[in-house]
Amino acid sequence: MGLSYNHPMPITYDEVQHVAKLARLELTEDELRAFQDELNALLGHFQDIVDLDVEGIEPKPHAVVRTNVWSEDVPRLGLTREQAISLSKKSRAGLFVVPTIIEE
């Protein structure tokens, strides 16, 4: 599956719903329809680079590329457990509280 480079199909409502699920965004139906329109408008705009010949060009992942950056192997204090936990909206006994994932 996937869009053909030269003839992009408009994104369907179901596809937008799927993207929202991947992005962990709970959206209303109105929002999903609005994003469907916005994504389709943008994808139309993206067409200019989809049509561009970029054969043989190495992708540039970063503005100023550095490779093999090492840091000194020196221990450094991080946050204490109390500091880290204190930022959470729900914690108990020094632990983050999350909804049950594995049922008994």
Binding site: V16, V19, A20, L39, F46, L52, I57, E58
Partner: peptide, 29 residues
């Protein structure tokens, strides 16, 4: 949310090469 949606779409299976990788090449150009 709009940008998260665009980005998630551009990175999702089947579209990565068409959009994200291609954009990185245009960036190099």
């Amino acid at each position: 949310k709009a940008r998260i949606m665009i980005g998630t779409y551009a990175l999702s299976a089947g579209y990565y090469d068409a959009y994200y990788l291609r954009a990185q090449k245009v960036r190099a150009l």
